[in-house]
Design a binder for these strands. Sequence first.
DNA 1: ACCTGAACACCGTTCAAGT
DNA 2: ACCTGAACACCGTTCAAGT
Lengths: 219, 219
Amino acid sequence: MPTEEPPGLTRDAVVRAAMRVLEREGVDGLSMRKVAAELDVKAASLYWHVRDKRELLDLLTDGLMADAQAPPRRGDWRAQFRDYFTAYRRHLLGRRDAAKVMAGRFGLGPHMLRFTEDQLSRLREAGFSDADATMATYLLGTYVQGFVLQEQTPLTAAETAGVGRREVATAIAEHLRALPAETFPHLVRLAGDLTGPTMDERFAFGLERILDGLATRLP
Amino acid sequence: MPTEEPPGLTRDAVVRAAMRVLEREGVDGLSMRKVAAELDVKAASLYWHVRDKRELLDLLTDGLMADAQAPPRRGDWRAQFRDYFTAYRRHLLGRRDAAKVMAGRFGLGPHMLRFTEDQLSRLREAGFSDADATMATYLLGTYVQGFVLQEQTPLTAAETAGVGRREVATAIAEHLRALPAETFPHLVRLAGDLTGPTMDERFAFGLERILDGLATRLP
DNA sequence: ACCTGAACACCGTTCAAGT
DNA sequence: ACCTGAACACCGTTCAAGT
C-alpha cells in the first residue's frame, strides 16, 4: 500500500519509502526497483531525485537517526555517556540492519550532526580538552557502530535459518571444546567464557573500559 | 591469467581465486561469475565446492587472516597489545576491502582461532581473569574491525572519485564551519579538531583508552 | 520539470544434462 | 564425482522519448 504524496515525488518521500522497504526486506532486499514500486513509480524516476543508490543510502543513514533521542543530562559525565551510548545501541538495534546501512558512512547529515553537537557539549562541560572531546566522540561512535554491526549479523548460516542465538552459541562452545587441546589450550578451556556472555554484557564491558580510559584524560 | 590447479577445482583453489578477484576488483566487484572466470570455469561449477556466496565469503574472511603475524612477546602486556592491534590494523589495511568482507563475521576459521588463542594466552599471562580475558579479545577485535571499516570506506562520493583524504577532510571542515553557530556552536568551533587528526592518531587514541580501561581490571 | 519504456550489462542460484 | 548450458528471477543505471 504505497503512501501517496500530494504533488509527485520528493527527495524526502524517496528516503521514507526506502526506510519502509529496509524494514520489510532488510539491506539485501533493498533495491532501487522496490523503492520505486513502493511509490508506484518506475525505478528510473528515482534518478531524478537522487544521484544513485549510494546517495540514497547516505540519506537513509541520516534518516535512521531522525527519531533518536539524547537522554536527559543527569548525573556525572560518566553516567550520562553510559546512558547515551546504551540508548544509541538500543536505537540501532531497533531498526533492521541499521548498522549495516550506516557501516563506514561518515555522519554528516543534520540528525547525526545534532547528536555530535550534543556529545561535544557534554564532553567539554565534563572538562575534556577540545582535542580529546573530538577524539572521544569518534571513538565511542566507532565502538557502538562496530559492535552493533557484529550483533546484527547472524553468527552462522544456522542463525540465518532461524536457530536462536543462544543455541548457536552453545554449538560454537561445543566446537571450541572439541579443538585439539595441545594447540588451542585456552580456547578449549575458555570455551564457556568465550560463548557465555550475552551481547548486553559484552557491550557494557567494552563501554565501561572505554569510559575508564577516557577518565584518565581528565585533570 | 588463471592459475591452473593440477586435477580440477578444489575448495581451496576457489578461495584463493576469490582473494585475487577481491584484490583486483574490490568487494563490490567480487562475483561468483568472476571467481569462476578466474579459474577458467563456469559459475555453476563453484556450487559443487561451496554452498553459496556467503560461505565463500566466510572462507575468504579466514583466508585474509592466513598470513597475519603475531608480533613477538616482548615488553609488558600493554606494549604487547599495542603492537598486536596496531599490526592487526595494518594487516587489514593491506588487503583491499578486508574489513568490509570480514564485517560482522564471527571468526571461527583456523587462522582466526590461532590468533584468538594467542591473545588469550597473553592476557592470562598478564594476570587477567578468564572472564575478562575473553571479554578483552572481543572488545579489541570489535574495535579494530569497526575502526578499519570506517577507514576503508570513502568518506564521501568525492573520495571515491579520487580526491585525497586530506582534501575531503578540509572540505568537511569548511562545511562544519559554515553551519549556524547558534545551533551548532561546538561543531563550528571544533571543526578543525574534528577533521584534523589522522587515522593513525585516531586509532592510537582509541587503542590507548581501551588499554587504560583494561588496566583497571588488573589486581 | 518530472516521469517512463526499453535497453544494457550485469547479478546469484538451480538443475537437467553431459562426461 | 565433477562440470556445463541454459534458464530464472533478479540487479543498478542510462537515455531517448513522452507529458
